[in-house]
Amino acid sequence: MKVLLTCIIAILYYLPVRAQFNDSTYYHLGLSATGSLNKTNTSDAYLLNNGLNFGVKKKDAVLNFNSTWLYGKQNRQLSNNDFSSTLNFNLYKTFPHFYYWGLLNYATSFSLKINHQTQAGLGIAYNLIDKENFNINISDGVLYDTSNLLADDRYDTFRNSFRLQYRMLIKDLILFEGNNFLQNSFANGSDYIIRSTNKLGIKLKKWISLTSSLNYNRMNITRSENLNLTYGITIDQYF
């Protein structure tokens, strides 16, 4: 793993660096490796949070692939083994600051008591603030959700999916960004999902940052939730 990470950093070091997508930028690669460790005389716990993001921009469309894996143990007992992989696209074809989106997501989660979950949906989004260093975006749409829970309970439902997203870069040094989702079932008011990821990054170079991430997830139908604070490095490369 150390050799692989060293090779990746060496390759990215020689790629041309840019701050964000622009007219001459068509690809984005992001890698993150964060975690936490706590050990005392009577207990020990650790948590690893790894992520991969790859994006492609072509004229009026953006395609993104994102995967995350959260793994942890507490006193040698498994606490987290949570995997999520998302493919989504944005289509900019109408008004300024407005676009359509589509999403396909697959997830498994030990901590949220999910064997398998697949979501697919469409919706609209609008940039309330759309500046180079400051962006606030809201989106809404409909998802079809089919899941298999750890209790071997299979169910399907349609959900309203609302998202608040933000990104703020201060003096090309400090980065705040977050994705926050609320997904309510149309059929059952007590069946809702909350997903919240908020990050603070301090750039060491344009392509590498020290990162702290706060993640909160709740799946109310299984009465399960998790809250995790991790820290590590993030590699961001546009080319």
Rank of each mutant, 00 (worst) to 15 (best):
T42Q: 13
D44G: 13
A45E: 11
A45I: 03
L47T: 03
L47I: 06
L48A: 10
L48Y: 04
G51A: 06
V56H: 11
K57C: 03
K57H: 08
K58D: 12
K58N: 13
D60L: 13
N66K: 14
T68Q: 05
T68R: 04
T68H: 02
W69C: 09
W69S: 07
Y71C: 01
G72W: 00
N75T: 07
R76V: 14
Q77F: 08
N81A: 03
D82I: 01
D82S: 05
F83Y: 13
S84K: 12
L91D: 07
L91W: 08
L91M: 13
K93F: 13
K93T: 14
T94W: 12
F95N: 07
P96M: 00
F98Q: 07
F98I: 02
F98K: 02
W101H: 07
W101Y: 10
W101F: 11
G102E: 03
L103Y: 05
L103T: 11
N105D: 07
N105F: 04
A107H: 04
T108A: 11
S109F: 00
F110Y: 05
F110K: 06
S111A: 10
S111M: 10
L112C: 00
Q117F: 11
A120I: 08
A120V: 08
L122N: 10
I124Q: 05
A125W: 01
A125Q: 00
Y126F: 06
Y126K: 00
Y126V: 00
N127R: 00
I129Q: 05
I129F: 11
D130K: 13
N133W: 04
I136W: 00
N137Y: 08
N137W: 04
I138P: 02
S139N: 08
D140N: 09
D140A: 10
G141C: 05
G141T: 09
V142D: 11
L143H: 04
Y144D: 06
D145N: 15
S147R: 15
S147E: 09
D152F: 13
D152V: 10
D153P: 09
D153E: 15
Y155E: 08
D156A: 10
D156F: 05
T157D: 14
T157A: 15
N160Y: 12
L164P: 00
L164Q: 04
Q165T: 04
Y166H: 07
R167H: 12
M168T: 12
L169I: 11
L169K: 11
L175R: 08
L175K: 03
F176M: 02
E177P: 09
E177Y: 05
E177L: 06
N179V: 08
F181S: 03
F181Q: 07
L182V: 05
Q183F: 02
Q183D: 02
N184K: 15
S185R: 03
S185M: 03
F186V: 09
F186E: 01
A187M: 14
A187T: 15
A187H: 15
N188I: 14
